[in-house]
Simulated assay, not measured.
Amino acid sequence: MEVTLLNHTPLWVCSNAIRTCWQSFDKGDNGGEIDLALIDRVGNQLKHASTLEHLFYNFYIKGISRACLQELARHRIASLSVKSTRYTLKELKNESEFKPNDFENASRYIVLTSNEFVDNASINALDNLRQILNQNTSLDIAKYCLPESYKTELSWSINARSLQNFLSLRSSKSALWEIRNLANLIYQNLPQEHKFIYENCLTKPK
């Protein structure tokens, strides 16, 4: 999978929101160390996390499965624009047969789990879909036999408060392995100067 950070809100917008509450603009340092400490104290330590909602991040996520997409969609305070199967399934139509154990070829379209039985079942489903498309079945109907492992991509936008929640839940070892990998990639792609907001949210590997 690939994660690209497209855009983000500068930190001074958050510190400005906090200082709006107290009208303490004269104590700020234009997004410097004093303002960063303020964000950490108010947003993280004192848990006035509503102030973090002024920070937004826009990501482009590529190569996750539809199963992972369903998990991602459970995070309500986020916006998703997803690659449409209705318009893009035809990319599969002119492919040659997908054969069992040809994981390298199939991985262009499906996310592999490293479980040979599961991955071969996904390859079979992928080839069934290819055959159905070649019967000139409408894409609206054909998409009903998409395997959950079928790859997709999306634009994903989220505010900092919701991102804290996402990282806390999805970096956990109890989370689906694929979305756990996604959570770690999202954290890695955050601007370095923003990471202090999320350090305590991430489950560190033992």
Rank of each mutant, 00 (worst) to 15 (best):
Y109E: 13
W177F: 01
L6H: 06
A175K: 01
V111P: 07
K204F: 00
N58E: 12
D127F: 13
S168E: 08
L167S: 04
H75Q: 11
C14N: 10
C14G: 08
K143W: 07
T88R: 06
K99G: 11
G31N: 12
L5A: 05
L46Y: 12
S107G: 12
F196N: 02
L72S: 06
N159C: 02
S79W: 02
V111H: 09
Y144D: 14
S174I: 02
Q45E: 15
V82C: 02
Q45Y: 12
N184R: 10
S84R: 04
S114W: 10
K195C: 00
T203M: 03
I186L: 02
E153G: 02
S107H: 07
F166H: 04
C68E: 02
V118D: 13
V82I: 08
H8D: 07
Y60A: 12
V118N: 10
E95T: 06
A67K: 13
Y57R: 03
G31F: 07
C68Y: 00
S65A: 10
P205C: 00
P10H: 09
K83Y: 11
E2V: 11
I39G: 10
K90N: 07
E104Q: 15
S84I: 03
T4V: 09
Y60K: 15
I77M: 07
R76V: 05
N115A: 12
Q23G: 14
L80T: 02
F196E: 00
H48W: 12
E193R: 01
Y187H: 02
E97Y: 00
A175S: 04
